[in-house]
Write a protein that binds this DNA or RNA. Structure first.
Lengths: 112, 112
DNA sequence: CTCGACTATATCACGACGTGACATATAAAT
DNA sequence: ATTTATATGTCACGTCGTGATATAGTCGAG
């Protein structure tokens, strides 16, 4: 299991799924799985409620690719944090979202 | 093949894939498949180059669900336009993108 | 006139992904 | 005592984007 280059990571993770984006955004502070679910529900005002399969599956994959790491292993709670690689990835993804947003505003009127 | 309700359409299409989003955004004016590919390449400044499988596959699905309709059938060119249903869908998707953008800006600094 | 590049559409197999159901267990509240 | 909330995990399922492959007309360069 070799560490992937940042280039390869970007290729496979961008465009990021909404799920992965909000999980990583939520990890702007260390959190455990269930905490992420609640936090994402909060910042999306109840719109996005992550299923357990989604959260633990995604977290496992992100951990495999060194995008998140284990911050602390408490009793019946694994607390994760985002790695430097993960931060780089998020910066790229945020740039892409800004592009989408700009284009959305540019053409918005045509759909009204 | 019954017409789906707007509610059902939103459920299955949102969150929208980047691909579907840019195809529909591009259809703010009637265009044919190849024209969409070139237009998307242009507005994303070369970042997103849609493959033929992606464009014709997605267009077929969008047509099936009455999100796009055929505007004109020219010789060796099928020109598509977005339907009213498609416009409603896009309005919802644009709102979601605004939410993502807002949250991205809110937490952006934590990843730098 | 011929050859390559561009225009244009279509299909199919492949791998990746999100989801929800199901399972398990503890703790707190009613 | 029972329900609700906390907390993690697995697995089958359907969907999706992608790239390879195929086909064919147009147009300019040499």
């Amino acid at each position: 299991m070799n560490r992937l280059t940042i280039k390869k990571i970007i290729e496979t993770y961008i465009p990021m799924t909404e799920t992965a984006f909000y999980i990583l955004l939520s990890l702007s502070e260390p959190r455990h799985g269930y905490g992420i679910i609640k936090h994402v529900e909060e910042i999306t005002e109840g719109r996005l409620i992550l299923g357990s399969g989604t959260i633990y599956g995604t977290l496992k994959k992100l951990q495999r690719d060194h995008i998140v790491t284990v911050y602390a292993d408490e009793l019946r709670k694994t607390i994760y944090e985002i790695s430097d690689l993960g931060k780089q990835l998020m910066n790229h993804e945020i740039e892409r979202l800004k592009e989408l947003h700009t284009n959305a505003l540019k053409y918005e009127e045509e759909f009204k």
